[in-house]
Amino acid sequence: MAVVFDRPKALSKVSTHYCPGCTHGIIHRLVAEVLDELNLTDRTVGVAPVGCSVMAYNYFECDMVEAPHGRAPAVATGLRRALPEGIVFTYQGDGDLAAIGTAETVHAATRGENITVIFVNNAIYGMTGGQMAPTTLPNQITQTTPFGRDVKLDGYPVRVCEMLSTLTGTAYAERVAVNNVKNVNAAKKAIKKAFTYQTQGKGFSIVEVVSSCPTNWGLSPVKALEWLEDNMLPYYPLGVYKDIGEEENK
């Protein structure tokens, strides 16, 4: 009998700790499928962040390093420089990448560090229980913006792909989402391109995945995906923000 669906080899045979309806599982799977398809798992080192995906080191079947909060791009830089034949990716949430680790993110990008960053943007701090993230939308209610994010006092959300696309060192920046099948397929294509660029030594690549947090948004998984589409995508438009491969092909 032909196998039509199986667990990717790069995904460990364990249950994750993620909440029901969380999209981390989908994104993990996409990364693992890409590692399988590009035959990279054996030479890949992943860097886990602090945040909901802190235990990603248990879920990917490649060598893994757990980084301090926000420092994954710096840890990845050390690894990448030490492993010229290796493949190095970070898997980071919005607080890790765009708040406490902004400096590390921006400078890894501007150095053109040859790493792949998987950036999961769900507009909230998940692990600590639903506080305001740098990507929390205006008026969005969180534990620390109980009356909604007041941009006059709490500031505006950060658009990461737009920001990083201004840097010469960024090779590829694309924003995708995992709220429906079409978008999931597009997300996988983007992740594959990001890893492919790393194998080609093109430099810093980032795939921002707009995703949901049913638990801390206080919505059912299905409603959460609807909320994502209605509220996040207008503020965080999907698309390619930078692609030096495309520019080279022009």
Binding site: V47, R71, A74, G78, R81, A103, E104
Partner: peptide
């Protein structure tokens, strides 16, 4: 490899990465 990091924080974490390798 010689690399001037963006901060001492980044530098020590690059150390962590290279030491991991």
């Amino acid at each position: 490899t010689y690399l001037q990091a963006e901060s001492e924080i980044a530098a020590i974490n690059m150390v962590l990465g290279a030491a991991s390798a």
